[in-house]
Design a protein around this nucleic acid. Structure first.
Lengths: 193, 193
DNA sequence: GTGAAATTGGAGGTCATCTCCACTTGTCAA
DNA sequence: TTGACAAGTGGAGATGACCTCCAATTTCAC
């Protein structure tokens, strides 16, 4: 955990303590999926800080969400890199897409929160999204280079599918449908022989 | 255009006029994509009615959105049925999916509004969604029956893909990616020979 | 230890949402 | 046509969430 805020300036000890407390509580509430149901003021109380402090560290709800989201994305990207290093590119891509579904399934609340954020579309997620996007793009590019998948469809198409899976997670039969979509996409990606 | 409200009770002439005025203005603003940026009170002014009247007819923003959305969905479903009647099932499905992308492309504002609504997930869209879902399910079932596509993936998977396309419409390269995803899904749907 | 600078936290201003009800308009039977 | 009652209207104002501001407090370099 870094000793500085998002701007790079070193924070005073008490400031850092408070910032971390807020982040920890936010992550907790993210997981519960109630992040958007809570009054922002009450949230400050829950984290044990005053509203002023909360607003100083995170000027908007979205800014806070983004801070939490960044850690998640970092973890996912890390996993993508690992796969990339240990498997043939085609399998790495397959494995990663399956992993994403499982990940979203496990952290349903998080998925709900993220879906809301994306749709509200304040662009707060731009940076985190770009990182994840890059990871998927790399996997796809590598698979194309190996000839494991067709080369006439962009990685963006796969990302849109993932976006849909994340956004639709409240469907009753979500897991089956998500797995099914990944199956379709992977089948569709096979190079025409 | 019906002469009654959503509950089925016949409305008085002035009530119907107001309701229609609100709906017409709502549709307009839907298209602009600013539906969620507007104060609900101001919206009443724009439609030429008092706030009380607005709230009487549509208790929430979502209720209003749903009323507009229903018409759109009805149009889309009608188109699906037409295709279903004039083309072989496999082609009807292909055509419909391509059509949906074009439709969303044309009505970007509408897409943005719908994406927000879905993510906010008040369930207000449940009924309209179900109708659209049924249309796609029918197309898929018919194609399976004809042996035009594989039978081991549910229509839900296709819907999730569509959901993603609708939700991701703000991506810079959206149109290409959406077309690409449809291509992948269609290719993935081909029966393993 | 001391002073300067950074940080805190909650009281209160601001503004969108929604309710309420005195008044207006439409409907229908005679 | 007219009267009387039901249905509908609309905007003033209550409500409550969001965010700002600044006096008091804490940290840290010297």
């Amino acid at each position: 955990m870094s000793t500085q805020g998002s701007a790079g300036k070193p924070l005073r000890a008490d400031a850092r303590r408070n910032r971390d407390a807020v982040l920890a509580k936010a992550r907790e509430i993210f997981d519960e999926g109630t992040f958007f149901d809570l009054r922002f003021d009450d949230f400050a109380r829950l984290a044990g800080v005053g509203t002023g402090t909360l607003y100083r560290h995170f000027p908007t709800r979205e800014a806070l969400a983004e801070a939490v989201y960044r850690k998640e994305v970092a973890t996912l990207c890390e996993h993508a890199r690992e796969l990339r290093g240990t498997l043939p590119a085609g399998e790495a891509l397959t494995s990663f897409l399956r992993y994403m579904v499982g990940y979203i399934d496990t952290y349903q609340g998080l998925a709900r929160t993220l879906a809301t954020l994306m749709a509200t579309g304040t662009g707060a997620l731009a940076e985190g999204s770009r990182e994840l996007e890059q990871a998927v793009t790399d996997l796809v590019a590598a698979a194309v280079a190996e000839g494991a998948i067709r080369d006439d469809v962009s990685a963006g198409a796969v990302l849109v599918a993932l976006h849909g899976i994340g956004a639709a997670h409240d469907r009753p039969d979500w897991r089956t449908e998500a797995d099914g979509l990944i199956t379709l996409v992977l089948a569709g990606l096979r190079p025409p022989s």
